[in-house]
Simulated assay, not measured.
Amino acid sequence: MKKISIVGAGRVGETTAQILAETELCRDIALFDVREDVPEGVALDILQSAPFFKFDGVLSGSNDPHILRDSDLVIVTAGFPRQPGMSRADVLESNVRIIDQVTDHIMTHAPNAMILVVSNPVDTLTYRVAQRTGWGRERVFGQAGVLDASRMASFIAQETGFSTRDITTLVLGGHGDTMVPVTRFCTINGVPIAHFLSKERIAAIVERTRTGGAEILALRKNSSAYDAPGAAVAAMVDAIANNRRRLLPCVALLDGEYGETDIAMGVPCILGERGVESVVTLDLNAEERADFQRSAQAVRIDIERLNML
């Protein structure tokens, strides 16, 4: 990709830009934010770290949406962060207004771009962007499952002492308290985690995964997570930029998969240079299907609220 733009120069946007610059996934990175001078300052700060991390490239920032022009990919991190005690759904009404405006800017200045939504509630806002643009699911998708799976993998590593390099996890469903960590597909170098952990410990890890973002928010008090979310976004960008065709859990529009339509939520996707190339439908057992349907219902409640705004 020739150009990647990041909407929102807050902590997630800045961390994402830093990682993308360091890994040289794109030489032209643009930051757009409505706060005066902030995106310019973030871009300049990252550029001045180049001699230490040995990367080249162009980083720029602006309050003018024209900076989005000719982007191949636009990453949307803008929005009001949740505060301690709030759910991701609690910021829906505030953030949908921001997302609508951002979407219009993208359609005007980068009509051929792919859009990666990070702002919360990500499932509902991904649905909104797709609805507003009319673009297909290959071009409009969201980040959630990659982050949730990495959190789960880190918890398993802490519990077992094994290297995170050997741990594979899978989290489906909505990015919230009803997310579905599918433990049957979680392994340590191919060996199911049930071989190493009791049912009680696995259940505790599942619950901690579901509340992983809230745990960090409660500890930080003045900020939600941004290091791991930025790294999760960068992993998705790497899959697209290098056409790796990785199997990653992404927020995607569903068209009959898992028995769901007219909804966006986390499912296994093949992610490559064209964005979401396909959705992989797993053969879930009865318990997993019930959990997935429960998660879908929670997302639908937010979509219904969205349609009334």
Rank of each mutant, 00 (worst) to 15 (best):
G8A: 04
R11Q: 14
G13C: 08
T15V: 07
T16V: 07
I19T: 07
E24T: 01
C26D: 11
I29L: 13
L31G: 00
L31V: 03
D33Y: 01
D45M: 10
L47C: 13
V58K: 15
L59N: 03
N63Y: 00
H66V: 07
H66S: 14
H66M: 07
R69W: 07
I75A: 00
F80E: 09
P84I: 09
G85H: 10
R88T: 09
D90P: 04
V91K: 04
L92R: 02
T103N: 09
D104Y: 09
D104K: 06
H105Q: 11
T108C: 11
H109R: 11
H109P: 06
A110T: 03
P111H: 13
P111D: 14
N112A: 15
N120C: 13
N120S: 15
P121Y: 05
R128L: 14
V129A: 04
G136D: 13
G136E: 14
R137K: 15
R137Q: 15
L147W: 05
D148E: 08
R151E: 12
A157C: 11
E159H: 10
T160I: 11
R165K: 10
R165G: 03
D166S: 11
I167P: 01
T168H: 15
G173K: 03
V180F: 02
P181A: 13
P181H: 06
P181T: 09
T183M: 14
F185Q: 06
G190N: 14
V191F: 10
A194Q: 09
K199A: 15
R201D: 12
R201M: 11
A203D: 11
E207G: 01
R208Q: 10
R210F: 13
I216K: 07
I216T: 08
R220M: 09
S223R: 08
Y226T: 03
Y226W: 14
A228P: 07
D238C: 12
A241R: 04
L248Q: 02
P249Y: 06
C250P: 03
A252Y: 01
A252C: 11
L254K: 00
D255F: 06
G256T: 01
Y258L: 03
Y258I: 02
G259F: 06
I263G: 05
I263V: 05
A264W: 03
G266K: 00
C269L: 11
I270G: 01
L271F: 03
R274G: 08
G275L: 02
V280Q: 14
T281F: 06
N285F: 14
A286I: 06
R289T: 10
A290P: 02
A290D: 15
D291I: 04
D291M: 14
R305Q: 12
